[in-house]
Amino acid sequence: MAVTPTPTIRENTRIAHDICRMRVEGVPRGEPGQFFMLRAGAGMEPFLSRPISICDATAAETVFVYRTVGRGTERLSALRCGDALSVGLPLGNGFPLCAGEAVLIGGGLGVAPLLYLAKRLRQIGVYTCVYTGYNDETFLQAEYEEAAGELHAKNGGYITDMVDFSRPATYYACGPAPMLRAAARKAREAGARLYVSMESRMACGTGACLGCSIPTADGNRRVCKDGPVFDAAAVFFEDRV
């Protein structure tokens, strides 16, 4: 039986006006694209845990970068070192790793999980071209300067407009649904392979409740268990002409 980990918070700071970074020890190391179900404290309120993607991880430490949008994430942001936190186990299927060259496209908070992917790809010798799109404040730029082979940042407008989809590369995208849809269309037109990390409201995070089901070309799929990373062609199949 798996032992539910007892994590220790080492840092929990605001890195932009509504973005926080939490560094946690004592958590099993997940893969790029996976997520954890986080909850502050030991009680039952708020009732559901919050799915938060892995922004970076080593054997010793896991980093979460999250946006404060409601009760659950506000409470997470109020945690201090030593406070009780529950994270469960790493969940979902992460990004399939590629060889050769990779293009990573992050929009808003979507830049967070792609950082861990960029680092992992660099480790296995894949050249990464990273596009980061923001609406106001930028964050994680210093980390990307170090991790990415080349880095293109844009503040305002559509990041997908900057991306050249004709490179002989594997494409990865994470961000708001309209951005992913635009990326999927451009990748399809260029004949490029694109993986997207999807977002959906979740209750369990483990595939039990079916609250996060989305329609795909292969039938309904659970974002938490079958994803969150999917082949874009399967998710945005209805856009096909």
Partner: peptide, 23 residues
Amino acid sequence: SLGNKGVRVWETPAGMLNSIGLE
């Protein structure tokens, strides 16, 4: 069944609402 469309889960005070629709 494919279940219901739209939002399926919603947190409430001390609980949750679901509208999975027997997928």
